[in-house]
Write a protein that binds this DNA or RNA. Structure first.
Lengths: 339, 339
DNA sequence: TTGAAAGCGCTAACAT
DNA sequence: ATGTTAGCGCTTTCAA
């Protein structure tokens, strides 16, 4: 049984109230009493019951994050880093992090509702925003504190951090165009994800700018996993006139695409250029190292978390909508177009 | 303000107690009352305050997991999958998952203490067990419920799930020996991690069995990251007499090692064989695909979580110590030794 | 400077 | 079949 305020109160011969106030450093407690109480508390290894505190304060000091997992295998290096950023920041601000995993859909939304209504969390972090995002709609409508990593369509007055995907893809495309590529294939993300669209648009605008046309037959839809990238790249490279460059919507798919290219006898960086998005650590050590766009994912986790907690605490946010400028990372998976 | 039992009680004109009992389906409540209460509760969107329930029951229905993060960048695909396994199982058993991240050390242990004493969690899942593991010692001593993924030295009467690392490495080594390799290098894990030692021993016993000697100069110590694997492989391959095969202690390092090999002009699977451990999804799509040992990490997450919750609930565990037999996955990163 | 009392929302032992 | 009472451990009026 853990030590309670009552235990300390008995020990020092004061009331529970006084002990509580002493420990909170109220200034209507005599210095002697404070010292005595603190000493006793230390000695008895007192740690307040957070459940009791929470019930009384009607706050959980906990933030929630529901990871949208599709299959049972959920192995995205992207998220573990994001969790680390969020978790560390939350801890440093005295908050707990409640993590659930749920596939997108009705059950997912219920998880949000349940966690909110049962008072388990004081706010939510939303990841992988969708073009039509029920989660954001719901939280926005009910005015429950949340911060999103990513934007959504139709709503724009909520706090978020996002990288400028459009710009990122634009840079990547210009890079490929600059290398002489004109048949540029793409493996996009699931169309319901918000960034999929943004990224696709980024590619298109770069093409248009140099007078090229976007060719839908060169665009495959992937599922953000290596396997997905592998399969889709295989299809693209098996075309009669395969593209000379492939833009994948994230690093994981790009790595899968490289694997497919290798298997089909292409030398990546020479016969075929491949690009990713995210700059996960793996990208630096793939073969060849991957040209991509960096997302400071750990930092984004920290930012999102800090914004959310400040929001919960009712503090003014310096910025409520942060769009990060993407940084192109050129490595060896892209090379000049050779006839 | 969320609906409370009192709200319902007022609405149906019964006492709070009766409402509570009706909702819990006690059989000393009349069917009519039950129906009435349930109807009202549904209509009012009643969801019990978990904080209040927890305070009363003195249980948090929450399990904790402290991820040992070393640097700020923590991008291990292994863990996100493990979290998914744990999280899904926890949810299905009505428990929450509290995730923190903390670098190994005193602060880490304090996190355990704090979460326990403040009643935030009812049990812990320990990952990446160490040869001398203060966490396990502490939990074991205080008899706080926990289940470890991995074993430790000196203590053997606690519940865990582990893969037989020794056997896994033994299989991998035999595979390489069978291909004719005799100069086998290795990139081990941090010596404080329990499996590092087990894995190393697995390699040694395979070597000894065929009359070869373990050569410490061919063994480098890595940090489980790609970069670590890259750096250490670079060193090994720059020796006057480089090894013809490299066993890395996990897939991430193996991928880094492949990258280094490529850079130094080796063709992996021909000039040099490289193996990993874990069989993360990436391994299937590396270039070349990686020979490794499979760990069913999602399933392990589920198993560990289920064991823990049963332990918390005071149920008899079917098995308290599970050692999984490893499965060798031969791909193209290993090939016959050629003079 | 201190303490008594109320209450956060719930469950459960004990009446009736 | 239902209600009364107490209490989980804490914070916070209010009174002394």
């Amino acid at each position: 049984m853990p030590t309670t305020l009552e235990d300390i109160a008995k020990r020092v011969g004061k009331s529970i109230t006084t002990v509580s106030r002493a420990l909170h450093d109220y200034d209507d407690v005599s210095p002697e009493t404070k010292a005595m109480v603190r000493h006793a508390a230390d000695e008895m290894g007192y740690i307040p019951s957070s459940t009791a505190q929470r019930l009384q304060k009607r706050r959980s000091d906990t933030i929630g994050m529901v990871l949208p997992t599709f299959g049972p295998r959920f192995s995205d290096p992207f998220f573990s880093e994001f969790i680390a950023g969020v978790g560390n920041k939350a801890a440093s601000m005295g908050h707990d992090l409640l993590v659930s995993t749920r596939p997108p859909g009705e059950l997912e939304l219920q998880t949000y509702r349940l966690n909110i209504q049962s008072g388990r969390v004081d706010g939510f972090i939303i990841v992988r925003t969708r073009r039509v995002d029920e989660r954001i709609k719901y939280l926005h409508e009910t005015k429950f504190p949340f911060v999103a990593f990513g934007r959504t369509e139709g709503l724009d007055d909520f706090p978020f951090v996002d990288e400028d995907s459009h710009q990122g893809m634009y840079l990547l495309s210009k890079h490929l165009l600059g290398l002489g590529h004109t048949r540029i294939g793409c493996i996009s993300g699931p169309p319901e994800l918000n960034f999929s669209n943004q990224r696709l648009e980024g590619i298109k605008s770069a093409l248009v700018e140099v007078g090229l046309e976007y060719d839908p037959t060169l665009c495959q839809q992937g599922d953000m996993t290596q396997s997905g990238g592998y399969i889709k790249a295989e299809e693209l490279l098996s075309l009669d006139q395969p593209p000379t460059a492939i833009i994948a919507c994230n690093d994981l798919m790009a790595l899968g695409a490289m694997s497919a290219a290798h298997k089909l006898g292409f030398i990546v960086g020479q016969d075929i250029s491949i690009t990713g998005f995210d700059d996960i650590p793996m990208s630096e050590h793939s073969h060849p190292p991957l040209t991509t766009v960096n997302q400071p994912i750990y930092d984004i986790g920290e930012m999102v978390c800090e914004m959310l907690i400040n929001l919960i605490l009712g503090q003014e946010l310096e910025q409520t909508q942060i769009i990060l400028k993407p940084m192109l990372v050129v490595r060896q998976s892209t090379g000049e177009y050779k006839q």
